[in-house]
Design a protein around this nucleic acid. Structure first.
Lengths: 137, 137
DNA sequence: GTAGATGCAAAGTATTTGCGACAAG
DNA sequence: CTTGTCGCAAATACTTTGCATCTAC
């Protein structure tokens, strides 16, 4: 929320080439969860010479540097999201595909507790809820 | 735990061909989370004429019939697991890849509550914890 | 026969990589 | 120069499909 991806790259010592800047800006400018195709088509409008290989290489680099997060939701391509400070999870509308982000401390705590119970330290987690909109009467 | 995959097929009206029987038995006989390659190589030892296309078609059929569950863990191929009565989640050892199953009612409840909070009825969920083994002193 | 199942190879996706060209220090 | 990046096309990995054949009713 506070920092742009470009700023994070500097902070992490990730070299910012022209191509990477374009990709970083597109990702910073969207709150959505973009897949590589989305990203590539948006990036292409800004600089049509950027290849999809570079987009793949860049998102991978950003992910490995801890600048963006990769999601592999059900059935399909990987989606990337800029890293937020809060560690949110996702509620996915199975009808529309709409993605709702949420944070729930209680569930985070519970997860740590469960991992600990089995003798593990929680390093990462993935929680996705798939739901159907209730018809509110 | 109680029923074999073959029994479930009968119950659900899924026709059991010879190939499907072999695949069903291999899956029933393993508590692991097998990917299609694992499955194919084990199945091949029993009947080498079964093609990988049939394995793919069969696991898909089983999944759509609610007989097995498909998991898409980080980084890679889909894995299949026979459906259990309890709705367990997974704790994955990031070092060894070992998968631990667990059930936690509290977390299940919490998930329903969160979905409801956003006006959704929980249809499905995915919870994966990635952990590092604590060095027990 | 008819409908569905299978084997095979070909086609599809999503993603990665080899390599020569290019860019920056 | 040297190191890293890029664009392109080819390669890879996983999965699906078209089609002719086979099977079971």
């Amino acid at each position: 929320m506070s920092e742009t991806i470009e700023q994070k790259c500097e902070a992490k010592g990730v070299k910012l080439t022209d191509q990477r800047k374009v990709i970083a800006r597109v990702m910073s400018g969207h709150n959505e969860h973009l897949d590589v195709d989305d990203l590539y088509s948006r990036v292409s409008k800004i600089d049509s010479k950027i290849s999809i290989a570079t987009v793949y290489r860049t998102v991978k680099l950003f992910e490995e540097s801890g600048i963006v997060t990769k999601h592999e939701f059900k059935g399909g391509k990987a989606r990337y999201e800029k890293l937020m400070k809060d560690d949110h999870d996702h509620l996915i509308d199975i009808k529309s595909g709409e993605i709702i982000e949420f944070v729930d401390d209680e569930i985070e705590e519970l997860q740590k507790k469960i991992a600990a119970k089995y003798g593990y330290e929680l390093v990462d987690h993935k929680l996705e809820l798939y739901g159907k909109k209730k018809n509110h009467k």
